[in-house]
C-alpha cells in the first residue's frame, strides 16, 4: 500500500533533484483506505517492447537509411539524427549485429563507385561506433552502383540511391 504511484513520484523527484535542493513532501494517497490499489513490482527488462527487437522494426521505425549529397561521404545533420537512433537501438539490442551497405548513383564509373560506397558505409560505421556500438558488431560492404533503390535517371532517383543502409540481424550474441 505504501508504494502506491511511487514510480511517477520518484521520477519527478529525480528530475527535481537536479535543480531544486529541497524535494517536495511525499504525496499522501487519498485512497489508501479504500482497497489494495496497484503495486509497483519493478521495471520491465530492457525497457523495450518485444516487437522492437526485430529487423523489421529497425528498418521501419528506427530508420535504416541515410542519404548523401552527390559525390559526398560526410554525414548531414539529418543523417546523424537517424544514426543516433540506430545506435540507441543497437545499444539496446546487443544480440543484433549490423552490416552497413554503401551505395552510389549510376553516374560515375563502376570501380570508383565501389570505393565511394565503401567510404559512405565506413562513415556510418564510425558514427555508430562513436555512439557506443561495439566495432565488432558493425561490418561494412559496398555495392557501388549495382543495387539502386530507385531506377530513374535523374536527380530525384539519384538522391535516393546515394545512401548507406544499415541491415541488422539477430546473431544471438550479446545480452
Amino acid at each position: 500500500m505504501k508504494h502506491y504511484l511511487i514510480p511517477l513520484t520518484a521520477s519527478l523527484l529525480g528530475l527535481a533533484a537536479c535543480t531544486q535542493p529541497a524535494p517536495p513532501p511525499p504525496v499522501q494517497d487519498p485512497y489508501a483506505n479504500m482497497g489494495s490499489g496497484a503495486l509497483y513490482q519493478g521495471d520491465l527488462a530492457g525497457g523495450s517492447l518485444a516487437g522492437e527487437a526485430t529487423a523489421q522494426y529497425f528498418s521501419d521505425q528506427v530508420g535504416d537509411t541515410v542519404l548523401f549529397p552527390a559525390n559526398q561521404t560526410t554525414l548531414s545533420a539529418e543523417a546523424r539524427t537517424t544514426l543516433a537512433r540506430q545506435a540507441e537501438w543497437l545499444n539496446k539490442h546487443g544480440n543484433f549485429s549490423a552490416v552497413v551497405q554503401g551505395h552510389a548513383e549510376e553516374t560515375g564509373t563502376r570501380e570508383y563507385n565501389l570505393a565511394l560506397g565503401a567510404r559512405r558505409a565506413s562513415a556510418v560505421q564510425e558514427y555508430l561506433v562513436a555512439q557506443g556500438v561495439s566495432s565488432d558488431r558493425v561490418r561494412t560492404l559496398s555495392f557501388g552502383k549495382e543495387r539502386p533503390v530507385e531506377v530513374c535517371s535523374n536527380e530525384s532517383c539519384y538522391a535516393q540511391n546515394r545512401r548507406a543502409v544499415t541491415v541488422v540481424s539477430d546473431t544471438g550474441a550479446g545480452s
Binding site: A115, A118, R119, A123, S142
Partner: peptide, 9 residues
C-alpha cells in the same frame, strides 16, 4: 588491384 580498409581504398 584496389584494397579497401576502413573505408579507404
Amino acid at each position: 588491384y584496389s584494397l579497401e580498409k576502413g573505408g579507404n581504398t
